[in-house]
Amino acid sequence: MLELLDINTYYGNIQALKGVSIRVEAGEIITLIGANGAGKTTTLMSISGIAPPRSGQILFEGRPIHDMEPDQIVALGISQVPEGRRIFPFLSVMENLDMGAFLRRDRDGIKADLEHIFEMFPILAQRRHQQGGTLSGGEQQMLAISRALMARPRLLLLDEPSLGLAPIVVRRIFDIIERINRESGTTIFLVEQNANLALKIANRGYVMENGRITMEDKAAGLLVNEDVKKAYLGI
């Protein structure tokens, strides 16, 4: 479904990604784990067109997307839940969700998806007229995921959804991620520092260090890999 072929991305003169190649198959959950500053967020931003690669190719369903504008990429069916949630603080919960459906024209479909989201996260329905910035961290994460879902993506990119959340909320968020994948068949590309949790729900995983992919395996394989255990699982 998605293929990154030897991409190199720079911030000014600093090379953040060095020859990264990743493959995502339709319907799977893949995870990219690694330390702070390894290049995980940059990888997602390269896919979304915010930090386009200087060289290399990104193919979505066989079509090159590395030269496209971010809005065109969203239109193809790739949505991102960025690190830190990035809720529009002065838009209401409703308006934040509307922004997720920005490119859609099918009113009925939008309405149905909205109902589905309110059923999944009743708290958002309760707070629909509240400003996004006034929500708690967990609620903001739910809103961020919901906003991305409102675009009805076929590929959902999630950047550190567990960041700064209480363990019980993290558990909840991960259940939801699995549910999205299972119920609507949405392919999920999950970036996480919490490697343990991420590898438990993923089919496959990649490990990133200093802008390079250093390991790639089935998630179950990475969970028992000695190097991964030492570096990322804290065992």
């Binding site: 990035r86 529009f88 002065f90 922004m99």
Partner: peptide
């Protein structure tokens, strides 16, 4: 309004 509040996030939502 979305662009004024967070430009990159507006881009990620599909705003031109």
């Amino acid at each position: 309004r979305a662009t004024a509040q967070d430009r990159d996030m507006a881009l990620l939502s599909g705003v031109n």
